[in-house]
Write a protein that binds this DNA or RNA. Structure first.
Lengths: 345, 345
DNA sequence: TGTTAGCACTCAACCGGCACGAGTGCTAAC
DNA sequence: GTTAGCACTCGTGCCGGTTGAGTGCTAACA
């Protein structure tokens, strides 16, 4: 026995209905609500076949059928292959991003809350991430008599800053002179390269040895403990609306996973090569998410920097809508960050 | 009829037991588990009195008694008055904050997760906030040929940065010269004062008019849309462990409140004058939190800057433990930020 | 006068039985 | 190949009885 056109149509109807209602769907429902021109008995036979083929599950004998992960996979693949991903909500998304100060973290927080509001699922946004950033400018800004702020501008526009102590009183001009010299020497190097060659530089700039040692300590600390990126999450409470999560234990595990941002980031993080990733149920590889699906899309922030936006929802997700929204949002973010990028170059 | 010593002792026992178990407590339980030397019948009479006085509620006639908000209030007040707030968990808290790079947001995130882990409730930490910060140094750091990073160092150590466009190519030395001149003129002023007097400065520095105008735009934008402070939240999932939140609807409302950080911040924000605030049930003034309590403590970040740490839990909270942990954590944060502050002055 | 033992009463929680109905699989007729 | 009909399954909701924790009241006691 194999799949034919009619089976496919029936499966589609079952999935649509299940996504809508969340309750196992029976043969009668399909024959009535969807104009198939077939009786419930015929649907029943087809459903039986579809179950044998592994596309449907039956919670118990007198209940309706529920789509399996395999069915969703088929459904999503055909959705993506036929390119039926619209851009309908573009304007409503675009509207959110006008006339604002675009600080990176604000933008991704905001993106997460917009996505979760539109989809009514949980949204996760990871900041752009790419190759090792290279230094462009190093500058020491005086903060007080014996402390300075280290500002490192990299080619990705990301700035790391923190104060270091000065060995003694140093005026603003001296700091500037050191900054210029450092910039000249370190420009184009990555953070860890800079770390490696700083001892050499210290030798050539004896007069400021102590200050540079402080800077060296700061850099190595940063290299070993990079500031972990900000992960934006929105709409975690949405998940509790779905009967899939009426089990408290499950809900708590889910929420607690959402709280451990490191783990969450590693789950969401895409390989950056695919426009979309859809992982259904067990495909997520995370036991806590055995009955969730994760849809991710990547956006670009110029210069090879890639970010990820993702939606987490029950396996019976409105995939088509989610893909459309992620698609639009991805483009929006790409425009936004690339635009900013253009300003800087 | 009025309160006497014995009633107080019994009430105390009832509250202790209810905090522990979460189920209505009966007279027999009190007479056996707590060595009162009284029979259950006597306890029963006293409980009846306590109910009449408004300290106990009875869910239904054949259930035990439950402490009222008024009872918790009495309990907490005596807890605070007698100063029975220990510092037992100090070492375990202190241990968390050693050998780390102390970036403000990391610290408060971390504090929230430590508090929630220790208390098993939900923790909220607000960053220090105080009088208008005053400028100390302004510096323009070149980012690319036609863009610069504006770094403003204020006396609170908080740094605002964002890129602005340069009118044309300007080398690092020119930018430095402008920075020095600006610093001289603006030092000691608040952000909005700086905004007001920048037009005057522009007049005196004709040659860089265009650059300064860009800066002016940046400052006014910042003045009107201050970056909203980062609110750290930890342990939201903990709330689902308590039977008080077995109702999904309630749980969802709670979580969604935790997601709207602005509102959350305004609920938690203390007046800064009290060491501790305990708001019980209706006292919170938030309908979603009718059966929650909120305990807050403030910490100081030096120079009049005040931050707030808070715990949100069911009304039957382990107040004593929570107060003790907040007390310790508040001191820890005060030390940490004041220490940093000391480095800078 | 305060304390306690005893007793009747209440009521949520639990359990077993029963009817209902949605849904299936199978068979026979079209 | 399709469909009508029928027997069968099984989760769900409802009803009534039992249980047990807990109370309030009263009478006896120290």
């Amino acid at each position: 026995m194999e799949m034919d056109e009619r089976k496919l149509r029936i499966l589609q109807a079952i999935i649509d209905d299940y996504i809508l209602t969340g309750v196992p769907v029976g043969s009668r429902t399909i024959s009535r609500k969807y104009e198939t021109g077939l009786s419930s008995a015929t649907i029943r036979n087809e459903m039986s076949d579809l179950e044998e083929l592994g596309y449907l599950d039956q919670p118990h004998v007198s209940a309706g059928r529920v789509p399996s992960a395999k069915a969703y996979r088929l459904y999503v693949d055909s959705l993506i292959r036929t390119g039926r991903i619209r851009d309908d909500s573009l304007e409503s998304i675009g509207r959110y991003f006008t006339g604002r100060v675009h600080q990176m973290e604000d933008v991704i927080d905001h993106a997460a809350s917009v996505i979760s509001a539109l989809t009514r699922y949980t949204a996760v946004v990871l900041p752009p991430k790419g190759k090792q950033p290279r230094m462009q400018t190093v500058q020491l800004v005086p903060v007080s008599r014996d402390a300075a702020l280290v500002v490192i501008v990299t080619d990705t526009g990301i700035v790391r800053d923190s104060t270091i102590r000065l060995p003694g009183e140093m005026d603003s001009d001296t700091l500037y002179a050191v900054s210029r010299a450092l910039t000249e020497q370190l420009r184009g190097r990555t953070l860890s390269e800079a770390c490696d060659c700083l001892p050499d530089i210290i030798r050539t700039m004896q007069e400021n040895e102590e200050l540079l040692r402080g800077l060296y300590g700061f850099l190595t600390e940063r290299k070993e403990q990079p500031r972990r990126p900000h992960v934006a999450v929105g709409g975690t409470s949405n998940m509790l609306s779905y009967p899939e999560y009426s089990d408290m234990e499950k809900a708590r595990n889910f929420l607690s996973l959402m709280e451990t941002r490191d783990k969450l980031a590693s789950i969401i993080a895409g390989n950056g090569e695919m426009a979309f990733t859809v992982r259904i149920g067990p495909e997520t590889g995370v036991p806590e998410m055995a009955d969730c699906s994760i849809v991710t899309a990547s956006y670009s922030a110029g210069d090879g920097q890639q970010g990820t936006i993702g939606v987490i929802g029950p396996t019976r997700m409105r995939y088509s809508q989610v893909l459309s929204i992620l698609n639009t949002m991805g483009r929006q973010l790409t425009d936004l960050f690339s635009g900013e990028e253009k300003d800087n170059e």
